[in-house]
Simulated scan of single mutants.
Amino acid sequence: MTVKVFVAQRVSLLFIKTSPVFGNITMKIYQRELLRCMHILFCLVILVLRAGLLYLAVSIRERLFNFNAFLYDYVTVLVFYLITSSSVFIVVSAVGICAAVTFRRRFFVAYSAILAVLYLAEIVLFGIAFNGWLNFNATVEEAMDYHISNYRNDSRDIDYVQEELRCCGKHREDEWFDTLAYIPVSCCPSRPPTDTQDFCSLLPPDISFIIHNTGCLKRLQEMPLTGIKIITSILIGVCAVEVLSFCASTYAIREIGTVVSTKNVNITREYELTKKSEKNINIYNEKQNNTRKAEVLFQCNARKGVHYVHKNVNQLTDSGPNVKHTK
């Protein structure tokens, strides 16, 4: 292993440690930011729509509170459902925004689980509400019959309806003759100031301008129609956004899990590469040591050889004149 290879391996390890995105299957930074912005946008839309439903429910309660005796399912039951569900979903939307900002897996899991449970519960309640809405007209008619038949005991609710809606009786004003034998004064609020009787006068010249001749039942049944259309439209829109938000949250959970598993794989690879590099470095150092030892040994042997040669030459030189030549 050369020094260049060793430096290249260390640089690659440093890049793996410091790089925010690594591995073959990872979520890139721009994808993560796009997912974060989309999820925050969905949560903000849910929050705004739920806040609008909450305001609408409070407005319905305040405006139609005096009609509660006839519109109980609309003024009380529906309003209670809207206030409760909107408040819960506002809190859940805040959790979703926190999950998108921090991009933590556990926050996304909690948000998706709560949203799924609430969405299923909302579908069930919506089905129950739709079934009740089919019987709404019959419920209003029963309430109307009850208050007309008990007018002598409690007349406040029916009088308020006839004065505010400018109507009289269930279908027509002459239906009061079957119950009271006269028409209540709430059917003729525009009578002359001189008329101080406790019932509406049927004297000429023209009583059609004094006594309301329109029934109250139809007007009561038509009162919630506009509000129901607005509420239904908002609920359909918010349900669609909630589905998109759930899909985005589920995708984020999957991608975060992929990134975590990829990081674990790369950490393992990094550890193995580090071990391999250390092993190669040890082998390289051992080879270098062996080479140095061989060089030192060679130098020592060479020095010994040179010294031996010089010694023999000196011996031959010293004994040269004493050598006797024989024939």
Results as ranks from 00 to 15, higher is better:
Gly320Cys: 12
Phe65Ser: 14
Glu173Cys: 01
Asn153Leu: 11
Ile158Pro: 02
Lys170Cys: 09
Asp195Met: 07
Met1Ser: 11
Val117Trp: 05
Glu222Leu: 08
Asp145Val: 10
Pro205Thr: 15
Leu217Phe: 05
Leu47Met: 15
Ser85Leu: 14
Ala116Tyr: 00
Glu175Arg: 06
Ile211Asn: 11
Ile283Gly: 00
Ser155Cys: 03
His307Asp: 15
Gly169Asp: 10
Ala121Met: 15
Arg61Trp: 13
Asp145Ser: 08
Asn314Arg: 13
Leu82Cys: 15
Ser201Glu: 08
Phe80Asp: 12
Leu120Ile: 14
Leu203Ser: 06
Ser277Pro: 00
Ile230Glu: 04
Tyr160Arg: 05
Ile256Met: 12
Tyr72Trp: 14
Arg156Asp: 04
Glu270Cys: 04
Leu49Tyr: 01
Arg50Gly: 06
Leu297His: 11
Phe15Asn: 12
Phe177Asp: 09
Asn137Phe: 02
Val11Leu: 15
Lys293Phe: 08
Lys304Glu: 12
Leu273Ile: 02
Val313Tyr: 11
Val45Asp: 00
Gly127His: 01
Tyr55Lys: 04
Asn150Ser: 08
Gly132His: 12
Pro20Asn: 10
Arg36Ile: 02
Leu297Gly: 05
Arg172Ser: 12
Asn153Gln: 15
Ala69Pro: 00
Phe80Gly: 07
Lys324Gln: 13
Phe42Asp: 03
Ser190Lys: 00
Asn264Ser: 02
Pro189Tyr: 05
Ala302Cys: 03
Asn131Leu: 09
Phe67Val: 12
His147Gln: 11
Glu255Leu: 13
Asn213Ala: 11
Pro205Ala: 15
Pro20Arg: 11
Leu165Gln: 05
Ala99Thr: 10
Val48Gln: 07
Ser201Ala: 06
Ala51Tyr: 11
Ser261Arg: 14
Thr232Ile: 13
Glu164Leu: 02
Ala143Phe: 02
Ile234Met: 15
Gly52Arg: 00
Asn314Trp: 10
Phe70Tyr: 15
Val259Ser: 02
Gly96Lys: 04
Phe80Lys: 08
Val309His: 10
Gly23Thr: 01
Thr232Glu: 07
Asp73Glu: 08
Phe107Gly: 08
Thr214Asn: 05
Pro224Gly: 06
Ile46Cys: 15
